[in-house]
Every structure is written in C-alpha cells, then in structure tokens.
C-alpha cells in the first residue's frame, strides 16, 4: 500500500486526543459512539459487541503501549480508522503488561480489500522503534500525521 493511500484512511474527525474512558470496555463504547455520531456506522452497539468478541480471541494489544483492535463488520460502509490517545494508559491485557497509550481501531466491511494491507502497513510502521516512540508522544492529529508522513516518506 502506497503512502498517499495509507494516509487517506486517517481522519481528524476520528482522532481522539484524550479518551475520557479509563477501561478497555469503555474505550470501545467511546469509539463506537463516535463512529455512530459521525455516521461512519449505523449502530454503535454492533461495533461494541464485535470489538469485545474480537478481544475474546486474544488481546489486540501488541505491546509497548499500543493496541490495534480490528474487525470486519457490515455496520461499516468502508474501511474506517479511529486513533485515540490516553496519556496515563489503559489496561488492555497486553502481552508485556504495559498500559496502552495509543489505540488504532480498524473497522472494515466484509468485502473490503484494503483491510489487511492497511493493517500490515500499520504494524510495519509501529515496529520501527523510533516511529513508535514519536507516535507515543504525539498530542494532536497534526503531529500524528506529521510523524507518519516523515517515517513512511523516508522508507
């Protein structure tokens, strides 16, 4: 997936600078409500239920303060990405037990072909230690997009 296409999936309306929630369960509700309010999905409860079921398969926290809850759902019309921050961290049952400070939620309709390539590209970016450390310090959508653009441009 090329950089320009990757960047188009991030939306300032779907960037949460500071979750009001303190638990994984409430974070899912906050995200789903934002998606319903912005008309990205037609019913918040469907996404809450699905994200919780996805977690039953195993945590979507990948360690080092990052979680990527992801699933396919008919409730979404197109690939939708929400990014949220929580400076003090949220318990996500991470493999390294560290609290999660940045959450990327990816929801895609069943037939979407960009879902796995996007997920792969995101994981690849987050494996870069410097990129990860800088992303964990961002406070705004502008700063977030700047970090991603710089790292992927220099690939």
């Amino acid at each position: 997936m090329i950089l320009q296409q990757f960047l188009t999936f991030f939306d300032s309306d779907l960037f949460i600078e500071d979750f009001t929630s303190h638990t994984k369960k409430d974070v899912f509700k906050e995200i789903a409500n934002l998606l319903e309010t912005t008309k990205k999905i037609f019913k918040a409860e469907i996404i809450i239920d699905l994200l919780e079921k996805r977690e039953q398969l195993g945590t979507t926290a990948i360690g080092k303060g990052i979680a990527i809850p992801h699933c396919r759902s008919m409730a979404a019309e197109k690939l939708t990405v929400i990014v949220g921050l929580k400076q003090e961290g949220i318990d996500f049952d991470a493999p390294d037990q560290l609290p999660v400070k940045i959450v990327f939620v990816i929801i895609a309709p069943p037939q979407d072909v960009n879902y796995l390539p996007f997920l792969g590209k995101l994981v690849e970016l987050l494996r870069d230690e410097l990129a990860r450390k800088r992303l964990l310090r961002v406070k705004s959508f502008k700063g977030f997009k700047k970090v991603i653009t710089e790292f992927l441009t220099n690939e």
């Binding site: 039953q56 398969l57 195993g58 945590t59 979507t60 990948i62 360690g63 990527i68 493999p95 997920l119 792969g120 994981v123």
Partner: peptide, 8 residues
C-alpha cells in the same frame, strides 16, 4: 503481525 488468535 503479532496478534494472538486462540479463542475460537
């Protein structure tokens, strides 16, 4: 990618 899949 680093995700656990074990709760079918």
């Amino acid at each position: 990618m680093g995700f656990e899949i074990n709760g079918l």
